[in-house]
Measured scan of single mutants.
Amino acid sequence: MDVFMKGLSKAKEGVVAAAEKTKQGVAEAAGKTKEGVLYVGSKTKEGVVHGVATVAEKTKEQVTNVGGAVVTGVTAVAQKTVEGAGSIAAATGFVKKDQLGKNEEGAPQEGILEDMPVDPDNEAYEMPSEEGYQDYEPEA
């Protein structure tokens, strides 16, 4: 019985440690998101679009440190934060509304985080759909 109880105690310690790591990862992701939003706020009209992409990228980098179902929630929060940063930029006159959601080359930025393969159960990952990809044929 002692062996059984000791095993359960060790398992509990492992769960607590994993929860603490997840909590730490979420806190880091939130900190990076805040950094990115402050970065966007300090940019001029020309830099705002690039700044919004930076927020998304920093958040995406930190999301990889967070495991399990938390990833889905962090990704949703990050996307809403990026959308909010863009709205703030438009409201303050840093950028025109028609410039939001495009990178410096004018290509749409939507789907940055949505296409990231995420499995809350950590069982399997699927690649994003290939609808947006084109076949590449090298020139002879």
Rank of each mutant, 00 (worst) to 15 (best):
1 M>N: 00
2 D>I: 09
2 D>R: 05
2 D>P: 01
3 V>C: 09
3 V>A: 04
3 V>F: 13
3 V>Q: 03
4 F>Q: 00
4 F>N: 00
5 M>S: 03
5 M>N: 04
6 K>T: 03
7 G>Y: 13
7 G>L: 05
7 G>V: 14
8 L>K: 00
9 S>W: 15
10 K>A: 09
10 K>P: 00
10 K>I: 15
10 K>F: 00
10 K>H: 06
11 A>Q: 00
12 K>I: 14
12 K>L: 06
13 E>T: 07
13 E>S: 07
13 E>W: 01
14 G>C: 13
16 V>N: 10
19 A>T: 03
19 A>S: 01
20 E>L: 01
20 E>W: 15
20 E>M: 08
20 E>D: 03
21 K>S: 10
21 K>Q: 05
23 K>D: 00
23 K>Q: 03
23 K>A: 04
24 Q>R: 11
24 Q>A: 02
24 Q>E: 05
24 Q>H: 08
24 Q>W: 11
24 Q>Y: 10
25 G>A: 15
25 G>Y: 07
25 G>K: 13
26 V>R: 00
26 V>G: 01
27 A>K: 15
27 A>H: 08
27 A>R: 11
28 E>H: 00
28 E>F: 05
29 A>P: 00
29 A>H: 04
29 A>I: 12
29 A>E: 00
30 A>W: 15
30 A>Y: 14
30 A>E: 00
30 A>G: 02
30 A>C: 09
31 G>E: 04
31 G>V: 05
32 K>Y: 15
32 K>H: 05
33 T>V: 14
33 T>H: 04
33 T>L: 08
33 T>N: 03
34 K>Y: 10
34 K>T: 05
35 E>N: 14
35 E>R: 07
35 E>F: 12
36 G>N: 12
36 G>W: 14
37 V>A: 11
37 V>G: 15
37 V>Q: 00
38 L>Y: 09
39 Y>F: 11
41 G>K: 08
41 G>W: 03
41 G>D: 00
41 G>S: 10
41 G>P: 00
42 S>Y: 04
42 S>C: 15
42 S>L: 05
43 K>T: 10
43 K>Q: 06
43 K>H: 04
44 T>G: 09
45 K>F: 14
47 G>W: 11
47 G>D: 03
48 V>M: 08
48 V>S: 01
49 V>T: 11
49 V>R: 12
49 V>C: 07
50 H>S: 05
50 H>D: 03
51 G>I: 13
51 G>D: 02
52 V>K: 01
53 A>V: 10
54 T>Q: 14
54 T>H: 06
55 V>C: 07
55 V>E: 00
56 A>C: 15
56 A>M: 06
56 A>L: 04
57 E>R: 03
57 E>W: 07
58 K>F: 02
58 K>R: 01
58 K>L: 08
58 K>A: 10
59 T>Y: 01
59 T>I: 10
59 T>R: 02
60 K>W: 06
60 K>L: 11
61 E>A: 05
61 E>D: 03
62 Q>W: 06
64 T>R: 13
64 T>G: 06
64 T>F: 03
65 N>F: 14
65 N>T: 08
65 N>H: 09
65 N>G: 09
65 N>S: 01
65 N>Y: 05
66 V>P: 02
66 V>D: 01
66 V>S: 01
66 V>W: 13
67 G>R: 01
67 G>A: 10
67 G>I: 12
67 G>W: 09
68 G>D: 00
68 G>I: 14
69 A>I: 10
69 A>G: 05
69 A>P: 04
69 A>S: 08
71 V>R: 06
71 V>S: 04
72 T>A: 08
72 T>F: 00
72 T>I: 14
73 G>N: 09
73 G>C: 13
73 G>R: 08
73 G>E: 15
73 G>Q: 14
73 G>Y: 01
73 G>K: 11
74 V>Y: 04
74 V>M: 06
74 V>P: 04
75 T>S: 06
75 T>Y: 14
75 T>I: 13
75 T>Q: 06
76 A>E: 08
77 V>E: 01
77 V>Y: 15
77 V>N: 03
78 A>I: 14
78 A>S: 05
79 Q>G: 06
79 Q>S: 09
79 Q>M: 03
80 K>F: 15
80 K>C: 05
80 K>N: 15
80 K>W: 13
81 T>C: 13
81 T>E: 05
82 V>S: 06
82 V>L: 13
82 V>Q: 10
83 E>I: 05
83 E>V: 01
83 E>P: 06
84 G>F: 04
84 G>C: 00
85 A>Q: 05
85 A>N: 04
85 A>H: 01
85 A>I: 13
86 G>E: 13
87 S>L: 14
88 I>L: 13
88 I>V: 06
89 A>Y: 11
89 A>N: 05
91 A>V: 05
91 A>F: 13
91 A>K: 09
92 T>C: 03
92 T>N: 04
93 G>K: 04
93 G>R: 06
93 G>W: 13
94 F>L: 13
96 K>T: 09
96 K>E: 07
96 K>A: 14
97 K>Y: 10
97 K>E: 09
97 K>C: 14
97 K>D: 13
97 K>Q: 03
98 D>N: 12
99 Q>P: 04
99 Q>C: 13
100 L>D: 10
102 K>P: 13
103 N>L: 07
103 N>C: 13
103 N>W: 13
103 N>K: 02
103 N>G: 09
104 E>S: 04
105 E>P: 14
105 E>I: 09
105 E>R: 06
106 G>R: 01
106 G>M: 10
106 G>T: 11
106 G>P: 10
107 A>N: 11
107 A>F: 14
107 A>Y: 14
108 P>A: 06
109 Q>R: 03
110 E>A: 06
113 L>T: 05
113 L>M: 13
114 E>I: 15
114 E>C: 14
114 E>S: 12
114 E>D: 15
115 D>S: 11
115 D>C: 11
116 M>W: 15
116 M>A: 10
117 P>S: 06
118 V>G: 10
118 V>A: 04
118 V>E: 07
118 V>N: 06
119 D>K: 12
119 D>F: 11
119 D>M: 04
120 P>R: 07
120 P>I: 12
120 P>T: 03
121 D>Y: 13
121 D>W: 04
121 D>I: 08
122 N>V: 10
122 N>P: 07
122 N>K: 08
122 N>H: 08
123 E>M: 08
123 E>R: 07
124 A>L: 11
124 A>Y: 07
124 A>E: 07
124 A>M: 04
125 Y>V: 13
125 Y>L: 07
125 Y>S: 12
126 E>N: 05
126 E>P: 08
127 M>S: 08
127 M>K: 11
128 P>S: 00
128 P>G: 04
128 P>I: 09
129 S>Y: 09
129 S>V: 00
129 S>M: 11
130 E>H: 10
131 E>W: 13
132 G>A: 15
132 G>Q: 12
133 Y>F: 11
133 Y>R: 12
134 Q>C: 10
135 D>S: 12
135 D>E: 06
135 D>G: 04
136 Y>C: 09
137 E>Q: 08
137 E>T: 05
137 E>I: 10
137 E>M: 10
137 E>F: 04
138 P>N: 12
138 P>D: 09
139 E>R: 07
139 E>M: 10
139 E>Q: 10
140 A>R: 08
140 A>C: 11
140 A>W: 10
